[in-house]
Design a protein around this nucleic acid. Structure first.
Length: 364
DNA sequence: ACTCTGACTCAAGACGTT
DNA sequence: TTGAGTCAGAGT
DNA sequence: AACGTCC
């Protein structure tokens, strides 16, 4: 997933577009998060040892619930208002990519089988992580959990990342938090990396602003999208021998993929057959997203105590005391941040009534 | 010298106790 | 799986 | 900081 080498490309060519932020500085902010990505991480790592994971009495996996529960509480305690966005139908162009992943998983499943027969623990550990897939059930479990916690859930018609970006463009959220750089390609005005990293692992939150990226790279949004496609994205191949640096050079020189294709040495570089870069571009420019205000309504409400206990304790074997304490944490957090952001507290001095200078629609 | 590729490595959540 | 990091090798 | 536990 994502855009190959984009972090480094931006670090080298647009350092001012990224700034370090403190986790605490997002108090009171609404933040959109790609749920499937989080669930995937939880399934890989939470409570795993070999093929063993956290499970309920029926033997169903609960690692994703454990992860989602504790992380969401962490966010709420920091005064952050998370909204989780779930994937819908993937676009057709992504099907090949998904097919690749599917076959890799199948391979890993065979490898795992062999490792288990051979009793090779390290291999079991390694291969079992590669067989992880987020299922419909995992998604539904997490939606149910989040709703019981009083945290809004949005179901995207297609790509969750694209929907997150759209929410941010229409100012329904302050920023998109993701580890996936294509949030920027989808035009998320403000994009946060490493938001969930604990402060113990000294990785600061990195905040990117698309407008600054474009300004510093001196590209239009459309050109930036072309740059991302050339660097390597999920939707189509890139041109062998052209990486980020060369792509940036070529885009600056020729302005678009079309003009690059007209001007580069085709002996030197072989262009993929039937290269669907235009469709890929379209998916980034105008992805299928929901813009209906009613479906995008977001409410952070009080947790449903009974519902949570039924779901987590009765149905999934969570420890009753822990869940009760956690519910208290949620309530305390909601009280603390219910007044929202105290603007006077957080804003830099002397700026409030300045008219917003709009360079482009995606500025905050 | 620069850039890209491919092969390799590593870690990955969050919490409480020690 | 992903990204990030590092290495070597090869092409310009 | 390292380690075991969470289910």
């Amino acid at each position: 997933m994502g855009i190959k080498g984009l972090t480094k490309l931006l670090a080298d060519n647009a350092p001012k577009a990224m700034k370090e932020q403190k986790f605490e500085s997002y108090f009171g902010r609404k933040i959109a998060i790609d749920a499937s990505m989080s669930i995937y991480q939880f399934l890989i790592v939470v409570g795993r040892s070999g093929t063993e994971m956290l499970t309920n009495e029926a033997g169903e996996v609960t690692s994703h619930l454990q992860g989602m529960f504790t992380r969401t509480i962490r966010l709420l305690e920091a005064g952050i208002k998370p909204v989780y966005v779930f994937d819908g139908q993937p676009p057709d162009l992504k099907k090949q990519e998904l097919a690749k992943r599917y076959s890799k998983r199948a391979d890993a499943t065979e490898d795992l089988q062999q490792a288990m027969e051979a009793g090779n623990k390290e291999d079991i550990e390694k291969f079992s992580k590669r067989t992880v897939k987020v299922t419909k059930q995992h998604n539904e479990d997490c939606k149910r959990l989040l709703r019981l916690m009083g945290v809004p859930v949005i179901e995207a018609p297609s790509e969750a990342e694209a929907q997150c970006a759209a929410l941010c463009k229409s100012r329904k959220v302050y920023a998109v938090a993701s580890e996936d750089m294509d949030s920027l390609t989808f035009g998320a005005p403000r994009f946060l990396r490493h938001l969930m990293d604990p402060s113990s692992r000294k990785v600061p939150v990195m905040e990117f602003e698309v407008s600054k990226v474009l300004e510093e790279l001196n590209l239009t949004m459309d050109q930036f999208i072309d740059l991302c496609i050339l660097s390597g994205c999920d939707y189509c191949d890139s041109i062998r021998g052209i990486g980020g640096q060369t792509a940036l050079k070529l885009i600056r020189q020729h302005g678009s993929i079309e003009h690059i294709l007209q001007n580069i040495n085709k002996e030197r570089y072989s262009i993929p057959d039937d290269w669907p870069y235009q469709e890929a571009r379209r998916l980034f420019q105008e992805p299928l997203v929901c813009t209906d205000d009613e479906q995008l309504e977001m409410k952070w409400s009080a947790p449903d105590d009974e519902g949570l206990i039924t779901f987590l304790v009765n149905e999934n074997g969570f420890n009753s005391d822990r869940v009760t304490k956690a519910i208290e944490k949620i309530k305390a957090a909601k009280n603390k941040s219910s007044q929202g952001r105290l603007e006077s507290f957080f804003k830099p001095v002397g700026n409030t009534s300045m008219p917003i200078k709009r360079k482009a629609y995606w500025l905050p």
